Measured scan of single mutants.
Amino acid sequence: VNVKKLKVSELKEELKKRRLSDKGLKAELMERLQAALDDEE
């Protein structure tokens, strides 16, 4: 998943799939999702 190419709605969906908070600004969502993806690898 390329975090930078996702829309806010898509970021929120990806975060929900991982049971993460989907609250906050786009930058925060991107950071949170990227951290989750880094952990998965």
Rank of each mutant, 00 (worst) to 15 (best):
V1I: 15
V1L: 04
V1G: 04
V1A: 04
N2M: 12
N2R: 08
N2C: 09
N2D: 13
V3E: 05
V3T: 08
K4V: 08
K4H: 10
K5S: 13
K5N: 15
K5I: 06
K5P: 04
K5E: 13
L6Y: 06
L6T: 00
L6M: 13
L6N: 00
L6W: 05
L6C: 00
L6S: 01
K7T: 14
K7I: 04
K7N: 07
K7G: 14
K7Y: 12
K7R: 10
K7D: 13
K7L: 13
V8Q: 09
V8M: 13
V8C: 06
S9F: 01
S9C: 11
S9Q: 10
S9I: 12
S9V: 10
S9E: 14
E10H: 04
E10Q: 14
E10N: 09
L11F: 01
L11A: 03
L11H: 00
L11S: 04
K12S: 06
K12F: 00
E13D: 07
E14M: 09
E14S: 04
E14H: 05
E14D: 02
E14L: 07
L15G: 02
L15T: 01
L15P: 02
K16T: 13
K16A: 14
K16Q: 13
K16S: 10
K16V: 14
K17R: 13
K17F: 03
R18Q: 02
R19F: 03
R19H: 13
R19C: 06
R19I: 02
R19Q: 13
R19T: 13
R19V: 07
S21H: 05
S21R: 03
S21M: 02
S21K: 05
D22L: 11
K23R: 14
K23Q: 15
G24P: 02
G24I: 03
L25W: 03
L25F: 07
K26H: 11
K26P: 15
K26I: 08
A27V: 13
A27R: 15
A27E: 14
E28V: 09
E28H: 04
E28P: 02
E28Q: 11
E28G: 04
L29M: 07
L29H: 08
L29T: 11
L29P: 12
L29R: 08
M30E: 11
M30K: 08
M30L: 05
E31C: 13
E31P: 12
L33C: 02
L33E: 09
L33K: 09
L33T: 07
L33D: 04
L33A: 05
Q34T: 08
Q34F: 05
Q34Y: 02
Q34A: 11
Q34H: 07
Q34W: 04
Q34C: 04
Q34N: 08
A35I: 08
A35W: 05
A35L: 14
A36L: 01
L37A: 07
L37R: 08
L37E: 13
L37T: 09
L37I: 09
L37Q: 08
D38W: 04
D38S: 12
D38Q: 08
D38K: 13
D39R: 12
D39M: 08
D39I: 07
D39P: 07
E40D: 09
E41M: 13
E41H: 09
E41A: 14
E41L: 06
